[in-house]
Amino acid sequence: MARVLLRVPTTAEKGSVIEIRALIQHVMETGYRPNAQGVVQARDIIWHFTCRYDGEVVFSAALSPAIAANPFIAFTTIATESGPISFTWEGDNGFAQTETRHITVT
């Protein structure tokens, strides 16, 4: 499991716009870079990121090799109700990881 850094507010006022920041440890190998032996290394990137709020997709992004290693994504969403916010990263070589945080909306 790759290490993940998530900044999600634990509490929020109903209807307010909250900012979410997500970072995951990953090499994001571009597929254009030769190694020490001069052989171009195969692409190994995370190509999709999804954020679900209470099961509904509120943000998603398609990533390319132009995204830096340890991809960082910041975005916003509206705090609608208390519930789980889950984050899914999908990548090459069957990479898939999901993390969940809980938000309390008052």
Partner: peptide, 29 residues
């Protein structure tokens, strides 16, 4: 982008639930 090996960087999907049309990331140039 214009001069990386591939022109695509990121494509993000939004909805009214986004609150703001905003996305931030770190890229390679």
């Amino acid at each position: 982008n214009e001069r990386n090996p591939q022109p695509h960087v990121i494509t993000a999907q939004f909805s009214p639930r986004s609150g703001r049309a905003y996305v931030a990331t770190h890229i390679r140039l």
